[in-house]
Design a binder for these strands. Sequence first.
DNA 1: GTAATTATTCCATTCATTGGAATATATCGA
DNA 2: TCGATATATTCCAATGAATGGAATAATTAC
Lengths: 417, 417
Amino acid sequence: MLTGTNLVYTKKYNLRIVHEVIRVHGPLSRADVARHTQLSVQTVSNLVKELLSLRLVQEGGRRSEGRGAPSTELTINPDGAHAIGLDLDRDHLTGVLVDLAGQVRQRMHMEVETPSPAEVVDLMCGMVETMATRQGLGVGDLAGLGVGVPGPMRRDEQGTGYLVNPKAFPGWHDIPLAGRLRERLDTPVYLENNALAAAVGERWYGAGRQVGTFFYIYVGSGLGGGLIMNGQPYEGFTGNAGEIGYLPTVLSGDASTPATEDAPHVGLHFNMPRLYERLRRGGTEVGTLEELDQLFAKSHPGMLAWMDDAADHLTALVLAIEYVLDPEAICFGGRLSDRILAGLMDRVAQLLPTRRPHGKVSVPRHLVATAGVDAGALGVATLPIYEIFAPAPRLLLKDRRGGAHGGSGLRRSARSL
Amino acid sequence: MLTGTNLVYTKKYNLRIVHEVIRVHGPLSRADVARHTQLSVQTVSNLVKELLSLRLVQEGGRRSEGRGAPSTELTINPDGAHAIGLDLDRDHLTGVLVDLAGQVRQRMHMEVETPSPAEVVDLMCGMVETMATRQGLGVGDLAGLGVGVPGPMRRDEQGTGYLVNPKAFPGWHDIPLAGRLRERLDTPVYLENNALAAAVGERWYGAGRQVGTFFYIYVGSGLGGGLIMNGQPYEGFTGNAGEIGYLPTVLSGDASTPATEDAPHVGLHFNMPRLYERLRRGGTEVGTLEELDQLFAKSHPGMLAWMDDAADHLTALVLAIEYVLDPEAICFGGRLSDRILAGLMDRVAQLLPTRRPHGKVSVPRHLVATAGVDAGALGVATLPIYEIFAPAPRLLLKDRRGGAHGGSGLRRSARSL
DNA sequence: GTAATTATTCCATTCATTGGAATATATCGA
DNA sequence: TCGATATATTCCAATGAATGGAATAATTAC
């Protein structure tokens, strides 16, 4: 839609920008904020007053640098908002409750074994209520609930939600998980592929805070990816952008790769059950990511062989991302241990120069994700907060089809953002 | 930069939106425009008055549909702006002068043979002045000049321009082509990789007018690509997004592909000089795209073999684009004849289902570019017009680092956009 | 012919940003 | 120590873009 704008949207956007600039660069004085945003000091003063009354930012001590009146330090109020993120995968359900500063205030984890949709909904609602209560909050006080699932997913016909359709869950087919949770909990629910969610988390709280455009490579129980462009998550037309696991292993069709029922694609090389199976055939019995970390620490030959193969394919993917997207950075994260991730990144860094066509002048930086094994849960927890606070230029336009996530978001405050 | 906005930007943006909505969906009445833009009719009335006085839109006849007062039809004034686009490649220099409606009003074409930078600047300035004069315009009346070159390029240190560094021109190295033309002609100059330029042209005048996000695959003297996201061209962090020709031919490193001094990459399979050489070794002497078209029409075996190989690689690239970007559409264009392009698209369409991992529900549409052999020149001609008229949300923000293209743009009118 | 409907414009109002001025509080230099 | 200077912040009035209400005009429906 080609919609116009007016000064109502201007105000909302400026409120968000002031909030964001304090969040990212804070602590800042009002004058600092004015310099960053190129707004006048009067405007900033007014907007800050509003953010203070909403308890989204707070005044700190006064600090004098050089001559002139000392400035009042403004920082984000961590308790300005809380959100819950749930990361669901074949083998686990992890939940975190985070505050506006990105601190994890509550955490829950449970092992599951390909549960049914009804079981999942029950487990999730239980987790949400338990964590909220422990934090002294009602579910209605939350900015919302983010739920991460392994992709791919698809939108429903009206475009008002997502249906889950994960290959990892055999019994699942077109389950409107977000809708069901929304009904039960009466709070906004954001369902997202966990790779993109992790990318949003990184953009909001992590290494991506200062980076406008980056690709996040997520290694969980398989291989996924998420894309942040100009600071905004990019979901793609059908909601499956970044699903690099499905890239064909060979660009020309005539080569030979592991035979499967499916067309040969990179994801097969990162499929954890396949890796466990491979190690088992080699005589090593493992079944969890922690055990893989132990194997790697002991330089287990089968594990190292997998690492080399994985790095080989990752290198090619990195090149594909470099040339298709030319991002500022590529971020590596997921549920692997930090040690394994570092090992993969080292190998990729060594392989890259040998595979890159000559003459490339500048290459994207490689970042390590900061969130560790809870990246997925942290990432999805960011979604509701992001929705309420992120200064997306889209918000300046009248076309507000969004809001399909239902609920009212953050009842007590910040309704005006 | 996290900058704010104010009502000055609001107005500018709304002017552009009204213009754009008439351009894309017109002819429209003021009331229609209000419905599209969700602005009030009074606002639209005021903005239209301004666009009329700038001679950017024009009133047509009155049309009555059903009861009620008949509406006045508003259309874009084709003579509201003119721009020139120059497409430079190893073997030719093509220029077009287009109007605001996208009609080619003047065209010039000349064969060149890897000319020196100084020669190119002279030729270009001559072309610009000749075409402007023939159209009854001064160079200063133009919205600007777009120049397309084969990638890759790079920005200079201050980020205020681009340096050309094309592999196709042996003698060229870090030539600030845009700067030199700007000095000589005193008009805004937009230098761009011709693939992205063609994508912008398609977005503005062609099949991409109604499509928000698409990838443009450009086959010229090599293989390139351009990316339009949410209606905006995406250049990438270093300005080389979409350079799919540099993707490695094999994702794993151990396969065998045509041996070269460079790492094996897809572009080698689309390199026209290499194709000519290959055909020559097969006993067929050709050296132009027209001759290739003739060969294809006669079902020349060597040409068909190349088509099959090219389609094989294109298929893989299409898959990579599908999964990394998940665009709404993929557009095929460039300087190949329509017939060859259609042949490639047919082959790709046949191969795709066999290579795509199962379970993908919806796939991007494939579009044929509408611009034909002049796609490059038409595309770059769009750049100055696009810069002046496109409603980019970015324009709503105070951060206006852009404008590195110099000059004043459209002296007589539209300075307020 | 009259009522209903739609397009467009005139006029007054609203409201966010902003420029100018005022105030407060610090450092710098003598 | 004291005045000069610099900086942060707020108060007040002005600016200007969008908008709601009302008026006008032109057409169709009945």
